[in-house]
Structures are given as structure tokens and as C-alpha cells.
């Protein structure tokens, strides 16, 4: 049926129907890298919705026990080795050595495959990754993510889990 009458929204006496979606994407990325006797996890601290940044210092890492941090699920296994468990909305669960997730997950995982996993390399180092190299790589990939992903930025909060406990540090990212 055609409506020939002009429509004046401001004068309408009909009830206004508001669309309600119970979901929101608040962005943010998390990266975890496991080594022989340690595991390092980092998450950015930006909380956003669309083009608005709600806050620049939102913590996204939660300590569950002395040797476990939830971001991706990260910790030391019962042999004291570093391990990363990832779990996604579909239900896919996997134990891994390194993982990137969140808004820049698709951007960072291939980078980790290359830098940490050394996939498809003819001369791959057999040496397990050192703690310093893991932290440096983690910082590098967050810098890269902040460059291209508007939902990742402000700063990264990093937690390093070893048998001696959890060390924390923050690392500043670009804030635009």
C-alpha cells in the first residue's frame, strides 16, 4: 500500500520504536606467548564503542591464581611449562604456544606465526624463546596493531607468569 501522506516525525503521536540490540563490540586485543618456564600475556587498555573511546585505562587481564591469568586463559601447566588456552565464542578451544585474540586478532596471529612459530622457514631456530624476546615481540605486535586497528591502543598491560609469581608492567601505545 502506498502512503501518500507526508510524514512529520516531530509531530508524530505514534509511539517511537527503539531498536534494542543486547550486544556491543567494545574492541580490544589480547596476545599471549608461552615459553619453556614462563608465559607472557598482554592486553590493551582501550575500551571503545564505535568511534568513541569510553576509557583509556580499562584492565582486561584477571588473575585467577598464582600461576593463572585470564585474558586468553594463560598459565603454567603442572610441569611448570608455559601454556596458553584460547576459547572463542563458537566454542573452539585449543592449547597453544602463542595466541592473539580480539579486534586485532586476525591482524596479529599471522605475525606471531612468523615471529614466534617460525612457520614455513627453512632455517628455523630450535632454541626455545627467551622471556626477553617474548616480551619484546609482544610489545612490537601491539605497536603494529595500534597502527592499523582503531579499537586497539592507549597502552598495554603485560603480565609475566613464572614459578616465582606474576610480574606486571605497562607499556604506552599511540592514543589516537
Amino acid at each position: 500500500m502506498f502512503e501518500a501522506r507526508p510524514h512529520y516525525p516531530d509531530y508524530s503521536t505514534a509511539p517511537v520504536q527503539h531498536q534494542f540490540s543486547p550486544y556491543a563490540d567494545n574492541g580490544g586485543s589480547v596476545v599471549a606467548i608461552a615459553g619453556e618456564d614462563f608465559v607472557v600475556i598482554g592486553a590493551d587498555t582501550r575500551l571503545s564503542a564505535g568511534f568513541s573511546i569510553y576509557t583509556r585505562n580499562q584492565n582486561k587481564l584477571f588473575q585467577l591464581s598464582k600461576t593463572t591469568v585470564l585474558g586468553c586463559s594463560v598459565g603454567l601447566d603442572n610441569e611448570g611449562k608455559g601454556c596458553v588456552y584460547s576459547y572463542d565464542p563458537i566454542g573452539h578451544c585449543e592449547k597453544a604456544k602463542y595466541r592473539a585474540g580480539g579486534s586485532a586478532g586476525a591482524l596479529l596471529q599471522p605475525l606471531l606465526d612468523n615471529q614466534i612459530g617460525q612457520k614455513n622457514m627453512e632455517i628455523a631456530s630450535k632454541e626455545p624463546i627467551s622471556q626477553e624476546k617474548a616480551i619484546a615481540t609482544l610489545k612490537d605486535v601491539f605497536i603494529s596493531a595500534a597502527e592499523r586497528d582503531i579499537y586497539t591502543g592507549d597502552s598495554v598491560s603485560i603480565k609475566v607468569i613464572t614459578k616465582d609469581g606474576i610480574k606486571e608492567e605497562t607499556f604506552e601505545l599511540r592514543k589516537d
Binding site: 534494542f20 543486547p22 550486544y23 575500551l47 569510553y54 583509556r56 580499562q58
Partner: peptide, 9 residues
Amino acid sequence: DKLGTAYTD
């Protein structure tokens, strides 16, 4: 907010 999204700042 209405979705339960909460933060302190």
C-alpha cells in the same frame, strides 16, 4: 549503560 557496559575513569 543500558547494556551493562561499565567502566571507571
